[in-house]
């Protein structure tokens, strides 16, 4: 029974990319993006996240937004794996421009160069930018 029920909802799987280009605490974009990503996990689509420009600051280690009395959501990126969201792409040029490497990030990611990032974007069915 339950298998049949699930089959009814198994439509075509689309590739969704969430593109993050803003620093985490100055605006609401980063947190909004993360919440949409967590919700999207329920729909069993092919979800990936891209971090470029100031978006790479979202993943920076050592953040504590609690001192601003704001939600400290950096640890939540570590929960994505449990939601079966495992494709996190970070642009090398953006990291370098900010003096960072993958070692400075709260989660394991795939570091890609700008040309590869452009290819990944063009390869999606849906791109959502934050």
């Amino acid at each position: 029974m339950s298998d049949e029920f699930e089959d009814d909802f198994s439509g075509e799987i689309k590739r969704f990319m969430f593109v993050n280009r803003k620093a985490p605490h100055g605006t609401i974009y980063a947190l909004e993006s993360l919440e949409v990503v967590l919700i999207s996990a329920a729909f069993d689509q092919d979800v990936s996240l891209a971090f470029l420009d100031d978006g790479v600051f979202q993943l920076r280690k050592g953040q504590n937004a609690n001192v601003l009395e704001m939600k400290n959501f950096a640890p939540t990126y570590r929960a994505l794996e449990g939601y079966d969201i495992e494709k996190l792409y970070v642009e090398r040029e953006s990291l370098e421009a900010r003096g960072m490497t993958a070692d400075d990030l709260v989660v394991p990611v795939e570091v890609v160069d700008r040309a590869r990032m452009a290819e990944l974007m063009a390869d999606q069915d849906v791109v959502m930018s934050f």
């Binding site: 939600k71 400290n72 959501f73 939540t76 570590r78 929960a79 449990g82």
Partner: peptide, 15 residues
């Protein structure tokens, strides 16, 4: 405490 969110039911069940 670890992730700063309440897990979705599906994630809770799996964990």
């Amino acid at each position: 405490e670890e992730f700063q969110i309440a897990p979705a039911v599906r994630v809770l069940t799996k964990q």
